[in-house]
Design a binder for these strands. Structure first.
Length: 151
DNA sequence: GCCAACGTTGGC
DNA sequence: GCCAACGTTGGC
């Protein structure tokens, strides 16, 4: 499977990932997104890096899964705003995969561009009220998006 | 198990 | 800043 992962660029942008090369996708506190990371995301799978709450919002680049899920260390950090009092090291609640930079799209693909592309009407990110921060993407959707982005 | 209240997401 | 849509919490 391929994936779309949302990040607010003010918090963590594709440019930052390019500099850092890799990052653990910490801070996810949604069960469905967690389950995707824990059970479904495999090393080498492609990730569309989506900038949410951005001007404009859209897909900024490509990444890939570089490590399988491990317990999210931020859940144990009392100073973190995503600290999880119910979790323990023996029984972690939240997990994260590691993601590696692949490319920034030569052409940024705005949400409006995605909406205007008839081949992408099935994309989850285009569905009204879709807030899930990690979403599966089909091979067909991925290849259309890559073409639109100039890769 | 139901569901109202609440908090969050994220486009606009 | 607004607010619709959604997920989670907690009383019952």
């Amino acid at each position: 499977m391929n994936w779309l992962m949302k990040s607010e660029p003010d918090a963590y942008s594709i440019q930052k990932l390019q500099k850092e090369k890799k990052t653990w996708w910490t801070g996810v506190r949604n069960y469905q997104a967690r389950n995707y990371m824990m059970k479904d995301m495999k090393v080498g799978e492609t990730v569309l890096f989506y900038h949410s709450n951005a001007e404009p919002p859209g897909i900024a680049g490509l990444a890939k899964v570089s490590r399988l899920a491990e317990p999210d260390p931020t859940q144990f950090d009392k100073k973190s705003d995503v600290f999880e009092a119910r979790a323990s090291k023996a029984k972690p609640m939240w997990f994260c995969v590691e993601v590696e930079f692949v490319a920034i799209f030569p052409r940024f693909i705005s949400l409006q561009d995605l909406r205007d592309e008839k081949k992408l009407t099935t994309m989850q990110v285009l569905k009204k009220g879709q807030r899930l921060s990690i979403q599966p993407v089909t091979d067909r959707e991925l290849s259309v998006v890559k073409k639109m982005g100039g890769l």
